[in-house]
Amino acid sequence: MPIPDFQSVMRPILSTVADGVPLALGELRERIASDFQLSEDERSERLPSGKQTVMNNRVGWGRTYLNKAGLLSIPTKGMVQITERGREALSTGPARITVSWLKQFPEFAAFHTSSPADSPPLILQGDPTEQATPDEQLAAAHQALTQSLAGDLLAQVRAASPTFFEQLVVDLMIAMGYGGSRKEAGQATQQTNDDGIDGIIKEDKLGLDVIYLQAKRWTNTVHRPEIDKFIGALTRQRARKGVFITTSDFSDGARNAAMSLDIKVVLIDGPELARLMVENNLGCSVRQVYEVRQLDSDYFVEY
């Protein structure tokens, strides 16, 4: 069974605590996951941030929304308990509790549309906000912006000169922690522009091992003969590691060739190149930072 969206778990949350006995949030999550017959993989699937499972996040937001609507109370830290309004919702409410239905309660309506006086509403109107939790909305927005940026970066790289592209490859390797200094890496690249190899870069700052580079600013797909040529060059150099970077893509034959020998060859295509540039702040900069804070319950513990 697919993981339910956070609206689909709200009525089951109320049903789980219908007896009026306070229930720990952890136990609530387990019971809801069991009610939906989720597999272990579904239970362990995580948000893009990796900090929380999808199911725990959705149950958590379901609890928050029900609490803001007055259907649930939080009597003590980490506990939930149904309210009289929650019991009424179970007896007279819809089979599926939604954000739209919760808006009939003034407390929830105020929470759902609240924002600073000089800012637009934090919760956008429309279908996406009623299917995804705020954490998922943030993750989706971040992913969309990142994908757009990656596309713009790749277009810029493809329009650059071959010389600039070779330097970009060096800058990227250094940004990822390889190559020692930029000067050393640049010199190594210039000294080895032959025999199917565009450059050599240190694997670490001490130079305990080296990585051989091949950079192709192409628009056409890279096929197996190019990879075979690169592997041959590595073999003649008695090299053990190589990185082949292109602005285009690799054919299946090329990818198979890179995995068929003892020599470790990593293939980086255009989309992966753009992703690594974003991840390492190469050719881009941080425009704005949003800090998401959470309640520090320990602060309120009285000794």
Results as ranks from 00 to 15, higher is better:
Asp204Val: 00
Lys77Val: 01
Ser49Glu: 15
Leu206Met: 05
Ser49His: 13
Gly199Lys: 01
Leu213Gly: 11
Val222Gly: 06
Ile231Glu: 10
Ala258Leu: 05
Glu291Tyr: 15
Ser119Met: 13
Ala141Gly: 07
Leu72Pro: 06
Ala140Val: 08
Ile268Val: 15
Leu172Arg: 00
Gln104Asn: 09
Leu138Thr: 15
Gly186Cys: 07
Phe6Pro: 05
Ala141Gln: 09
Gly177Asn: 02
Leu122Asn: 10
Leu267Asn: 07
Lys205Trp: 01
Ala188His: 08
Asn67His: 14
Ala95Asn: 15
Ile13Asn: 03
Gln214Ser: 05
Asn56Ala: 11
Ile200Gly: 00
Val54Ile: 14
Val157Tyr: 02
Gly180Lys: 01
Leu90Cys: 13
Met79Leu: 10
Leu172Asp: 02
Ser44Met: 11
Ala140Lys: 04
Val243Phe: 08
Leu261Trp: 03
Arg46Asn: 12
Gln187Thr: 11
Leu25Gln: 11
Leu213Thr: 09
Leu71His: 11
Pro106Arg: 01
Thr146Ala: 12
Leu90Glu: 14
Lys183Ala: 15
Ser73Met: 10
Tyr299Pro: 00
His223Lys: 14
Leu28Tyr: 03
Val9Met: 01
Leu282Glu: 05
Ala132Cys: 04
Ala139Thr: 04
Asp19Pro: 01
Asp194Gly: 13
Ile32Ala: 02
Leu23Gln: 04
Val243Gly: 05
Ser161Pro: 03
Ala117Val: 14
Val210Ala: 00
Asp262Ile: 02
Glu88Cys: 08
Asp298His: 08
Thr163Cys: 04
Gln104Trp: 06
Asp152His: 12
Ile197Met: 09
Gln187Asn: 12
Trp61Phe: 05
Gln187Pro: 02
Pro116Gln: 11
Phe165Cys: 07
Asn193His: 12
Asp269Leu: 09
Met277Cys: 13
Asp171Ala: 14
Gly196Arg: 04
Ala155Phe: 11
Gln237His: 10
Val170Gly: 08
Leu25Arg: 12
Pro48Asn: 07
Met259Pro: 01
Pro75Trp: 09
Arg287Pro: 02
Arg85Phe: 03
Val210Ser: 02
Phe105Met: 14
Ala155Ser: 12
Lys216Val: 04
Glu203Tyr: 00
Ala95Asp: 15
Ile197Val: 15
Ala239Thr: 02
Glu45Tyr: 12
Tyr290Asp: 15
